[in-house]
Amino acid sequence: MKWKTTDICDEFGMDLEVCQQEFHSYGGKKQFFGPISTVRVFEDNVLVEESLETIPEGNVLIVDGGGSKRYALLGDRLGEIAVRRKLAGVIINGCVRDTADLAQLDVGILAIRSNPLRSKKDGKGDLGITVTFGGIDWRPGEYVYADEDGVVVGPKRLL
Rank of each mutant, 00 (worst) to 15 (best):
V90R: 00
H24S: 05
D137F: 07
T5A: 09
K69Q: 04
I109Q: 11
I112Y: 00
G108W: 08
K121Q: 12
I109P: 07
V46F: 08
P116E: 08
V144C: 14
G135M: 15
A111W: 01
A88G: 10
P56W: 14
R85L: 06
V48Q: 14
G94A: 08
N115M: 01
V60P: 07
V90L: 00
G123P: 06
D106R: 15
T54S: 15
P56C: 14
Q31W: 04
L74W: 08
C19Y: 08
D44G: 09
C95Y: 00
K69F: 01
K30R: 12
D64F: 03
G123A: 12
S119M: 07
L73R: 01
L78T: 06
C19Q: 06
E11A: 08
D98K: 03
G65K: 05
E49Q: 14
I92W: 00
L159G: 13
E80I: 00
C95N: 00
G65E: 05
S37V: 06
T54N: 15
L52C: 12
A111R: 01
Q31K: 14
V96D: 01
I136M: 13
D64Q: 04
G58E: 07
G34V: 09
R118I: 12
I109K: 10
V48K: 14
F23D: 03
V63F: 10
L74T: 02
E148G: 13
R139S: 12
G89C: 02
F12S: 03
K121E: 05
Q21G: 02
D106F: 05
R85E: 12
R157M: 05
Y145N: 09
R113V: 02
R70N: 11
G34Y: 12
A88L: 02
K69T: 04
G141Q: 13
V131D: 07
E50H: 09
P56Y: 15
G141K: 10
D101K: 11
T132K: 15
T6E: 13
D98S: 13
